[in-house]
């Protein structure tokens, strides 16, 4: 551990990696809460995969991959909405059709894009290769995402909890749906370097689900989720640096470990206490008879 701390103080690349991955952990945790509560986990997976062609085209025309990714993400969510609303295709099938098409297109375009771009690092992330530009992009995106959530917290809460009530308040549910999609795309872009496209969905839904098992209040859920996200990011960075393992994969496994702990030992929802309660109830009933 002390070796890691010395390295952290000495190496700028490690500091960048640490700062970026913590920021990613926090914003994934925050947006993840809304994704989980809106029942859009599959949508999160879809959008993150679907940004690939946007990233490829950005490389081809030489602009920041941020722009291409946002366009691809928005097109995907509009496309999914269009197919599921205008045809008899169910929502989950529409998601599967559209995002795999975008992802496939992305793979082909990436092959055609400049050879300097490494598909593997986009798919799986490589936090130790984070450059200053990536760090600033992540910081900018993080600021936008957190400010949006703070400013529109009330509206996000009511459109997530009870869209019908939101509609009677005159709130545009559809607009908020697409706003959440845009935020989701931004968060995916911010996570490209750290966990990569394939695993970012885990950073969105695992810390949020862990927090969901531990609290009954949304503000606490968001705070815990951000904490778990940041904690998994730091743990993942430490382990992957010391043992030379894929950073994205380790980060995700760290988040999963926390989830499993909560699943079994959460004071209210924990499976262990639940089964103990059930068996003691059964005993009481049996003895009563």
């Amino acid at each position: 551990m002390s070796g890691f701390m010395t390295d952290l103080l000495n190496y700028a690349f490690l500091q960048k990696a640490m700062f970026t991955s913590m920021m990613v952990g926090i914003i994934c945790g925050v947006i993840g809460c809304f994704i989980v509560l809106r029942g859009m986990s599959l949508m999160g997976d879809a959008i993150s995969h679907a940004v690939l062609p946007g990233v490829a085209i950005s490389y081809m025309i030489g602009v920041n991959y941020f722009y291409g990714a946002v366009v691809a993400g928005v097109l995907t969510s509009v496309g999914i909405g269009f197919v599921s609303e205008k045809s008899r295709i169910k929502n989950d099938s529409a998601i599967g059709i559209i995002f795999s098409a975008f992802f496939a297109l992305g793979i082909i375009l990436m092959a055609k894009a400049a050879s300097s771009v490494d598909l593997t690092s986009i798919l799986f992330g490589n936090v130790l290769a984070v450059r200053s530009a990536d760090m600033w992009t992540t910081l900018a995106i993080g600021t936008i995402v957190l400010l949006t959530v703070i400013v529109f917290y009330k509206e996000l809460l009511v459109t997530t909890f009870d869209p019908t009530l939101a509609a009677t308040f005159g709130l545009p549910n559809r607009l908020f749906h697409y706003a959440v999609m845009v935020l989701l795309t931004l968060v995916t872009v911010a996570s490209l370097r750290t966990v990569g496209i394939i695993l970012v969905v885990a950073m969105l839904i695992t810390p949020a689900s862990t927090a969901y098992l531990l609290t009954d209040r949304l503000p606490a859920m968001i705070g815990l989720s951000a904490l778990f996200g940041a904690l998994s990011a730091v743990t993942g960075l430490y382990v992957s640096f010391n043992y030379n393992l894929s950073s994205g994969a380790v980060i995700v496994l760290a988040a999963t470990a926390m989830f499993l702990l909560a699943l079994f030992f959460s004071p209210k929802q924990g499976l262990l206490w639940r089964s103990m309660r059930t068996s003691s109830n059964r005993k009481a009933v049996r003895n009563g008879n």
Partner: peptide, 10 residues
Amino acid sequence: SSVDWDFPIN
């Protein structure tokens, strides 16, 4: 029946 009763809200 139209409400998500598991939502984290008191």
